[in-house]
């Protein structure tokens, strides 16, 4: 009974964790199978020898390098811009007095109630109007702004003493210099939390890039993988699909493992966009 008390919960959690991680293992294992081994029953979860050529095929048969580069470029630029603009707005709400502050704040607040899917159709036509369809602008620009980040930074600066900034003002810095040289470096944890959030959201985003990209060389990883899956008529090339999936999840898992603490703090502060 005592042993059960001590090990029971760990046993339950271990079984659950194995089931949770199993699809990742299936992904990796299948990506290393040879072509003839795929349609084997029972499924082969411990491939040997390892067929790394599936990964090489990613770059010969499909434009995996392009998809990967597009994902990196779009996610990196979106993250950098999003964090900077949100930090600026959050700083203004926390530190500055200006007319109609509450009304402006309300304008920000309201956007949290709108699910992104509601906007997606007219947003597409707006992109058409701007001539941005099938261009990087459409993939990046709409993702640069968000209310959640503004709240995050407002909270952060509210809980931070402003003596240093006042000293900077005394030394003759204007508000922009004060923000850039003094306030922003002190907000690193908030920046990290938001950056991880935005990066993962942008890397994983599918519906919007699917709608605004038409040509192959503008596709991000999720859209590329989806197109690859659709391209198979009779027989699906599972090994190639799994190799592509594996490559697409590695960066995001890496970023998450590095910044897990910040990411979870961000979640508890209450906003998740999927």
């Amino acid at each position: 009974m005592k042993i059960l008390r001590k090990w029971g919960p760990i046993l339950i959690l271990t079984v659950g964790a194995i089931l949770t991680l199993l699809p990742f293992w299936v992904m990796l294992a299948t990506s290393l199978l040879g072509r003839e081994q795929v349609f084997q029953y029972p499924p082969d979860l411990f491939p040997w020898p390892l067929h790394f050529e599936n990964y090489a095929r990613l770059f010969d048969q499909i434009a995996m390098g392009t998809y990967f580069w597009n994902s990196v470029l779009v996610s990196a630029l979106t993250t950098a811009g999003h964090v900077l603009f949100c930090a600026m707005a959050g700083y203004a709400f926390s530190r500055m007095q200006f007319p109609y502050k509450n009304a402006v704040f309300f304008i920000f607040l309201m956007t949290l109630m709108v699910p992104p899917q509601v906007n997606i159709v007219p947003l597409y036509f707006l992109m058409k109007l701007f001539g941005w369809v099938d261009r990087y602008e459409a993939l990046i620009m709409p993702g640069l702004f968000g209310a959640f980040g503004v709240f995050l930074f407002r909270q952060w600066f509210n809980g931070f003493p402003k003596e240093l900034e006042e000293a900077a003002r005394m030394d003759g810095c204007n508000p922009l210099q004060t923000f850039w040289r003094v306030a922003l470096p002190l907000a690193t944890p908030a920046m990290a939390a938001l950056a991880i959030f935005v990066f993962i959201g942008s890397w994983n985003s599918f519906m919007w890039p699917l709608i605004v990209t038409h040509s192959d060389n503008l596709r991000t990883l999720p859209v590329g993988i989806s197109a690859l899956k659709e391209s198979f008529r009779d027989v699906t090339d599972w090994t190639l699909l799994m190799a592509a999936s594996t490559v697409s999840i590695l960066p995001v898992i890496g970023v998450f493992l590095l910044g897990q603490r910040y990411f979870i703090q961000g979640i508890l502060m209450g906003g998740v966009k999927e």
């Binding site: 992904m27 994983n204 990883l221 999720p222 699909l241 999840i249 995001v252 898992i253 990411f263 999927e274």
Partner: peptide, 9 residues
């Protein structure tokens, strides 16, 4: 944290 498209595959 992983892309839904990749894991859906």
């Amino acid at each position: 944290v992983t892309p839904l498209v990749s894991v859906a595959v």
